[in-house]
Design a protein around this nucleic acid. Structure first.
Lengths: 225, 225, 225, 225
DNA sequence: GATGAATGAGTGTTCATTCAT
DNA sequence: TATGAATGAACACTCATTCAT
């Protein structure tokens, strides 16, 4: 009789740590790169935060630049096919679909360490054009395509009014970008003393988004002449 | 007899330059700090772009950090009182007022070099907390106050529906922030090959904003249950 | 069978050097600081003389100034208690005691690298008031106290005539100071072509000193009116 | 009838100042070089202290090094022939002659700015061998020759005992050197809180010197066996 | 594999010197 | 003649990278 399948025993500490090293280094590097920027981050600090020596870092990453690229690559959660598939099967209203998009973005990206990559790309775009293009290709392009399909669905069904899709997609994206920034540079985004609840912001934004997108009511686009 | 054409008298070269130097250096520094970040910008490069030698830069700014702070301080125009006064006198609809706000933000800040400061503050927030707080105090706080008053006006007049003002202000601000980023890091903001017209974006956003803010139309806030 | 000759095991090179580094750097720094003065000494030169690179120096001393202070502190042997104890137990004449003082000063300090510190303190007094005060406290004060006690002993026993101790101590110290200077700046102290033997100078000085201090003979202090 | 000879009218301020410039610069430079050493002294500081601009200094001295050399050369009071002549005519005792030497050294050099040159030469000997040799030739050599002649006179007349002249001259010089140092680096020479009167020191030293040099008293040179 | 001592190219900053005014 | 803005070589110090242990 075959033994019941067991969870794989945790490897002996040494070995597991060895396996974990690169990940711990990437975590530490992400935090520091996001907080201080690429140039201002010292590799020794990254190593120290990961609990290893400077030399060890170079055992896993041939250079600081490679470490940076690895950080970006590893943090990109390219789950867009899956996300796209979910939306294909969705049968509710497009408004509801967008709400789900916002919420799951928040849960999977916005509130996680991955959101730091966005800040990183914005800040280091000038210094790493190549890796930012990679990010554009892997993240921005599919994300925009996803949203575009959702908006097309809404327009096709009559839920949404007719819009220039290029700008409409940006309209959907902008609040998420802003929310990301508030998490990493709150002082540069919000007034002194503001108390800010990301989830409430998400809720508020989706409401605002839908009201703005609804086809029906406004007889004229400039209701207050 | 025609007057002899006179060569335009070249102002004393040394003296004239002396006046211009700080400004030229600040301009060069702003460009480079925005493009590459504080740490990755070399003072020699700033000096070269301003057409002077490294030593000359230190004649006007005692250190790189002081140069940075001067860049921020000088670029903060702080015309918010004037802006506020204009709005007090405005007699049209609040929607129109917001449209004017967006447009004049674009003309005075968004499309100028000053917009770089926003990117700088977002990116360097972790490295220069003090100067970012200054920015918050001089820019963010008054800007939010301005928008808040506009929204209150709209709510008081019945043009706008009742909203949580804290979040509504962010709703107004987010697109401007996003637009700023598209100008400085387009690749990190927009899909490959997108052609993007800032003025069209502004127009689109104000339309979207107003539809979302208008009290009248939506019978229910979740029209697609 | 003869034992195979073994190569002297080179101690682990890295580790052994690690121990030696600070000392080697301090030695090199002392030499150069004494020879050229603080400002004219380049840290790279110190490092080169110690056989390491510039960066290595900063591994052991956080700054040039700290290196300087360490040089001074390390070179101050501060064996004055021991010296004082020896004198307490001494049973010979006070003249002999002074002779021993001179001689052991020469052997322990005068003819060693430590004498450079004296020159350094004289030359850098204006630039490092704090460290010179430290030197005063650790070296000058106890040295003067020591000599003062010897002179008091001589006066009490009737060997020496009655003198103003403050000036008498300086009288004892001055030749040692001068001897120190002849070692580090002979050209500024002695005529061209002079051949100068420090030990002979010491002997000459103690003779002169004692003749001058002896109570007995001179019936009048100004024998040649 | 010819006009009574008048004192030359003080030249108009401008012109006189122009004449005075080099002297004022040399004064300022001497002070600063003595206080801080050659390398640590900035030419701008010298110029500022002399009340002129940096550029003006270079109008009078082609380089910092030349300024330094000029300072030394100008400050050397080569009055040794005159001094020597005075001594030739002196008819009193040699002891009195030495007393006069000490006193007039103090008045002409020791208590004047010229004494700074001694410190300068001691401190910069390693960096300016050439100028120090010049100093040796112009100051040390004649000074030692002067003293040597005085001592020879004393020995010839029987006032002084027979001594090795080389060392005896140093014995005369050492206290003056020490006194010079106490004036420029008191903290490195004297105990904390000492109050020190240069004139009293001079007096004390001459007394001590004569007692030590007098032939008569000590029957044996080591009176305390 | 892991370490951390050592390196040296690179950067911010100073300051003697020049020169147009 | 006097100025002081401009220069650039020189120097203190940093930090990514190497490598002997």
């Amino acid at each position: 009789m075959p033994a019941r399948p067991t969870l794989p025993l945790p490897a002996p500490k040494r070995a597991r740590r060895k396996q974990a090293r690169p990940g711990e280094l990437l975590d530490a590097a992400l935090d520091l790169f996001v907080e201080k920027g690429y140039t201002a981050t010292r590799v020794e600090e990254v190593a120290a935060r990961a609990g290893v020596s400077k030399g060890t870092l170079f055992l896993y990453f041939p250079s600081k630049e490679d470490l940076f690229k690895a950080v970006v690559r590893e943090s990109i959660v390219g789950r867009f096919e899956e996300w796209g598939a979910l939306m294909e099967q969705f049968t509710g209203s497009t408004g509801e679909m967008l709400r789900i998009c916002y919420q799951s973005w928040w849960e999977r990206i916005g509130c996680t360490r991955a959101s730091g990559i966005t800040k990183l790309m914005l800040c280091e775009a000038g210094n790493f054009p190549e890796i930012v293009q990679f990010y554009q290709h892997e993240v921005i392009d599919p994300a925009h395509a996803l949203i575009r399909r959702a908006l097309e669905r809404g327009m096709a069904s009559g839920e949404f009014r007719t819009m220039d899709l290029d700008y409409a997609v940006q309209t959907v994206v902008a609040p998420l970008m802003f929310l990301t920034l508030t998490r990493h540079s709150p002082v540069a985004c919000m007034p002194h003393g503001a108390d800010f609840n990301p989830q409430a912001f998400i809720d508020h934004q989706i409401d605002h988004l839908l009201h703005g997108l609804c086809a029906a009511p406004p007889p004229s686009s400039h209701p207050f002449p």
